[in-house]
Design a protein around this nucleic acid. Sequence first.
DNA 1: ATATTAAAAGACTTATTTGTCTTTTAATGG
DNA 2: CCATTAAAAGACAAATAAGTCTTTTAATAT
Lengths: 141, 141
Amino acid sequence: MFSKSCKYAIRAVLYLAVHSDESSKIGVKEIADSLEVPKHFLAKILQQLAKHNLIASIKGPSGGFFLTETHINASLIQVVYSMDGPEMFSSCLLGLPVCSSDNPCPLHVQAFAYREGIIYQMKHQTIKELANRIEREELKL
Amino acid sequence: MFSKSCKYAIRAVLYLAVHSDESSKIGVKEIADSLEVPKHFLAKILQQLAKHNLIASIKGPSGGFFLTETHINASLIQVVYSMDGPEMFSSCLLGLPVCSSDNPCPLHVQAFAYREGIIYQMKHQTIKELANRIEREELKL
DNA sequence: ATATTAAAAGACTTATTTGTCTTTTAATGG
DNA sequence: CCATTAAAAGACAAATAAGTCTTTTAATAT
């Protein structure tokens, strides 16, 4: 479904949503250790997210990564798009070049219905809402 | 979602379901040309499917690949399992080692519903039923 | 039997993804 | 201003997926 980069990105953003803010930034090391993912690989992913303005970063002592109000009120779908591109959700399940309601592949109906569900959730739920649920239900990242 | 091998495999099996039977076998070349996929790559995939008894094959002149009654009454899920393995449907969307209803990742509820739908369809619909629909609705492969 | 046909098997190359390491740039505190 | 800290940038390396090519094996028809 998602590439590893994308999975790491989602988890990192949610981690930042729960643990960071303007006044308490977090370094790559802490995030990588907490999520148990390769540090340098995660660093590149965070750079990319920062470049796409999905997270904020500051260099130097007491620097690190964090989410602003704007970031935390966005939806996760942007993170997915920036890592795996928009085809993730729109491309045909069987890899056919043309596949739509007009011209459906044999699995189009099923794929469409169920993918719409995930897209809807990812689009209409803010990162903040997700973060709140993570804290409330003590979910693991 | 699926690897390319798996996509090619599904399409090839459906192609065989529509066009082949015990008395009219089909060669790799014809399938590869029809589906517009790399011939030698598809050959390896068909070999693997044959080894797993998901399709039948006969060597020599008038040989080729085909589906028996048994094959055509099976479900597509076996094809997916044989190409991409069972983790495809069971593993966590975020790649967490433990993720279940007891111990859900932040996207577990959404992901679960989505995937169960596709699994259900792939499990409870026979290849024959799919093939009939493909012919009836003139769907592309 | 033997020549022909087509799948099976296996070696190999290429591309992509994932992961590592080093150097550079920018912010901060002394 | 300068040492320190941490992200940014970029060069590599490893692992996996995708694709190609050649040789071997088995079935068939002449």
